[in-house]
């Protein structure tokens, strides 16, 4: 057993970073399309001032996760595709704290970073293979795999399932 030191923890965190193309030069690229997500607060990487901004292509480059599930707000089961919150948090060097997600309609939800796990919620940008417009809860919708994990069928999780998401603020407690 080795002693727990911050350096070791940092090394462990770094070692989890996926080998996505975006990381080739070690920094975030600049968005070329419409910016659909802005992340602010305590993040390790930025590409515009203190913020990290993403267009759809950049999010797609972070790796895509798909699952099928029903939701309380839709009729029937649909397939959702997007970047997992876990990958996003990893890219941005976020391992703890709270994510405050805000929607276009000014709805806001606080999501603990601990929710960002593999097999957990994704920032969905496609429903049944189609990109989602604002009228269809797009462009980003934080969808949990409700059907896969009963633990996600709670009101707290439902309240965190924010659609028309466009901004996340990271704060370390």
């Amino acid at each position: 057993m080795f002693a727990w030191r911050p350096a070791t923890a940092a090394a462990l965190v770094l070692s989890w970073i996926p080998t996505a193309p975006i990381l080739a030069n070690g920094s975030l690229p600049q968005p070329r399309g419409e910016i659909i997500l802005t992340v602010t607060g305590d993040i390790a990487r930025t590409n515009r001032g203190d913020s990290a901004v993403f267009d759809l292509a950049m999010l797609r480059d972070l790796g895509e996760v798909r699952f099928r599930t029903s939701t309380p707000w839709t009729d029937g089961v649909h397939e959702y595709a997007g970047v997992s919150l876990h990958d996003l948090a990893s890219i941005l060097g976020v391992s703890q704290g709270t994510l405050t997600a805000t929607a276009l309609n000014d709805y806001a939800a606080e999501i603990p970073v601990s929710d960002a796990v593999e097999g957990g919620p994704i920032l969905a940008y496609m429903q049944d293979g189609d990109e989602m417009s604002v009228r269809e809860k797009g462009p980003l919708w934080l969808v949990y795999p409700y059907d896969q994990n009963e633990a996600y069928q709670t009101d707290v999780v439902f309240s965190r399932s924010i659609w028309q998401l466009h901004q996340i603020h990271v704060s370390v407690d």
Binding site: P72, W73, T74, D75, N105, R135, E136, K137, W163
Partner: peptide, 10 residues
């Protein structure tokens, strides 16, 4: 999107 939600949601 709000009206659609009300119209569609379970």
């Amino acid at each position: 999107s709000r009206v659609q939600l009300i119209e569609e949601s379970r």
